[in-house]
């Protein structure tokens, strides 16, 4: 009943000087599922994302996306294959409006040759952009400079931009951090919808235990750069090692 793996990481390691941020990490993200990644601050979650999408070269190990070895590909090349990430610090184009942020995220931009680079974008792009801005609740603010939006709104815009790009797999780095708690349930629903309706596989770093238990089909837990546990949400919630890691770290 297990779906085939869309992402596979085998024995990946990454150090910064003396700091071992990731050590021998292996994991599998099955196609169509929502997989959670938890762990105390500094346990190496963001580093793992960075090595998967090509920001940092791996010290050791391999990464496979849809069966293809991608460890030596560069960030934009991996993105064009259909694996996208959002940033923990939230990154949008602050000097552009929400609509422009969305348009520039269209996958049509991936096709850039001499004839397309100088052209416009077809009206379908605007329709899709409006739908998605509506989906995350930013339609009204679509013509404001996105740098003037609140942090939470920027986070939602970044999510909408990622959806606009139509990835097969989306890596989200703490999507609920900094979001008004009253809006978190709405965001969880949208993440689930993106998974079910748009068919995007999600791999989500999440600090908030309640959120990840609600969201994920299965969960990996990192601590001190090592993979500590893997299982269903219930199993992880009751895993003594996980409980210790969280209590010990705070």
């Amino acid at each position: 009943m297990k779906n085939k793996a869309i992402l596979e990481v085998c024995n990946s390691s990454k150090s910064f000087g003396g700091v071992i941020a990731n050590h021998n990490i292996s994991l599998t993200v099955p196609e169509g599922e929502i997989v959670g990644l938890i762990g105390p601050n500094g346990s190496g979650k963001t580093t793992l994302f960075n090595t998967i999408v090509g920001t940092h070269p791996l010290d050791n190990g391999e990464v496979y996306f849809e069966g293809q070895e991608i460890s030596s590909l560069r960030v934009p090349e991996i993105a064009r294959l259909g694996m996208l990430r959002t940033f923990q610090q939230t990154r949008i184009y602050g000097g552009m409006t929400g609509v422009q942020n969305m348009r520039i995220s269209s996958p049509l931009i991936h096709d850039s040759n001499f004839s397309t680079m100088f052209s416009g974008l077809p009206p379908e792009v605007d329709e899709r952009s409006d739908e998605l801005l509506e989906f995350v609740g930013l339609y009204e603010k679509r013509n404001l400079m996105s740098g003037d939006l609140s942090f939470g709104q920027q986070k939602l815009l970044e999510f909408a931009m990622a959806l606009m790009n139509e990835p097969k797999l989306l890596l989200l780095d703490e999507p609920t951090a900094g979001i008004n708690p009253t809006l978190i349930n709405g965001l969880i629903d949208r993440l689930k919808l993106a998974n079910e309706k748009f068919g995007i596989t999600l791999f989500v770093i999440e600090h908030n235990m309640r959120v990840v238990m609600n969201l994920a089909d299965s969960i990996y837990c990192l601590a001190h750069g090592e993979m500590l546990a893997h299982g269903l949400p219930d199993e992880i919630q009751n895993d003594q090692k996980v409980i210790d890691a969280y209590l010990g770290a705070s």
């Binding site: 999408v53 560069r74 090349e77 993105a79 552009m96 520039i104």
Partner: peptide, 21 residues
């Protein structure tokens, strides 16, 4: 799209790369 890509590079080049541009 040319102008939009230039603006995206100006605002956050790492983001533009991460979006496959």
């Amino acid at each position: 799209r040319f102008g939009m890509v230039l603006n995206a590079i100006r605002d956050d080049e790492d983001k533009a790369e991460a979006m496959g541009i």
